[in-house]
Design a protein around this nucleic acid. Structure first.
Length: 349
DNA sequence: TATTCGTGGGC
DNA sequence: TGCCCAAGAAT
């Protein structure tokens, strides 16, 4: 391990952060609840994407108590479009844990924080340091990238065990009395200056401490293995309309992909097939790309009579007919938004 | 340890 | 366009 001037590094980093930190809604006060919510939303999600969701979320659920007492479906609706929906369900579970076990007050120690649902090593460190000023590491992708360059570390940061080495480094170089700013400064630097592609070394406040810069290898760090390509899934999707003009929707499984969100009935097919013909009219093809799979959806419109309603409902306990205007009450995945738009447009005819 | 969890933006 | 990426956690 190469060594740096730790005190000089801290001063240069903290000085830059003081003058350049972004004015973000969760930085306006030190409310641990706001910091918690923001950290969950920010997992694998950009700041610009999170800001409107955070502001809306705080109007709906201003306090832990408000969030704990809300229906899970209401929380999921507030999360609609943000992705990784288990974050919303786990956060809802965790705030109820705080209500029951901690009298509604977020525990201040890192060990207790880490035990809450949906809070892993990074988020525990982030809340502990930012909200409660413990000198704990908060190692995310930014921090691994920055430190890989500062110390020319060639470990594959895509590997699961990589984080621990960086946590050990942070424990050595963290500004003990300014842990909140130090951790945020490392992340801010990674987001604004020490970016994945084309890092702006000329503007970097800690360039003189950076071995990658000195050796001219910043473009080759960090090392990160490529992930395998997504798998294709072929689906028939049915917009079923009854005699009353209502649409058939169903709630997805309590676990797995898009858990507990709503959708139009879908059936998976072995592979890409000929379009269906009788009884149904083909509407559109919708392609939706997830992290690890791709949905190829053939969407069909199906008008049914009263006698057919029961059969469609009995095929799945989690189905119901709803008026088109009421679709906005349910959390749908983004993959279904354009189907909804089309379905409502069709219903106007 | 590797895979499963979304989505939108940038080039 | 296709690919990479973003303040990760759960399994």
């Amino acid at each position: 391990m190469k060594s740096i001037d730790t005190r000089g590094f801290q001063q240069d980093l903290l000085g830059w952060y003081h003058n350049n930190k972004r004015d973000l809604p969760w930085r306006k006060d030190g409310d641990p609840y706001k910091i918690w919510v923001s950290e969950i939303m920010l997992q694998q999600t950009r700041v610009d994407t999170v800001i409107p969701y955070f502001n809306h979320f705080m109007r709906l659920f201003p306090t832990i108590k408000d969030l704990a007492e809300a229906d899970e479906e209401t929380v999921l609706k507030a999360w609609e479009g943000l992705g990784y929906y288990s974050r919303a369900r786990n956060l809802h579970t965790a705030v109820n844990e705080v209500q029951e076990h901690y009298g509604g007050v977020i525990p201040a120690d890192p060990v207790s924080i880490r035990k809450l649902k949906g809070i892993g090593p990074y988020t525990a460190g982030a809340i502990s340091s930012i909200a409660f000023h413990y000198p704990e590491p908060a190692v995310d992708g930014n921090v691994m990238r920055v430190l890989a360059r500062i110390f020319t570390i060639c470990d594959d940061i895509a590997k699961n065990g990589a984080r621990k080495r960086f946590e050990a480094i942070v424990r050595e170089i963290i500004a003990e009395n300014e842990a909140a700013d130090f951790n945020q400064a490392l992340m801010e630097l990674g987001a604004m200056i020490c970016t994945p592609r084309d890092p702006d070394c000329h503007s970097c406040p800690v360039a003189e401490h950076c071995y990658a810069r000195e050796e001219g290898v910043q473009a080759y760090l960090p090392v990160k293995a490529k992930k395998k390509p997504p798998k294709n899934v072929y689906l028939d999707t049915y917009v079923v309309v009854n005699a009353g003009g209502e649409l058939l929707i169903e709630q997805r499984s309590d676990t797995g992909l898009l858990a507990k969100l709503w959708q139009f009935p879908m059936t998976e097919k072995e592979q890409e097939q000929e379009k269906l013909q009788d009884e149904v009219s083909y509407v559109q093809h919708v392609k939706h790309v997830f992290s690890h799979l791709v949905w190829e959806m053939d969407v069909y419109l199906l008008q049914i009579g009263e006698e057919e309603e029961q059969a469609w409902l009995e095929a799945n306990e989690r189905r119901k007919f709803v008026h088109p205007d009421d679709l906005t009450l349910y959390p749908f995945p983004v993959s279904h938004q354009k189907i909804i738009d089309g379905a409502i447009a069709d219903n106007m005819n």
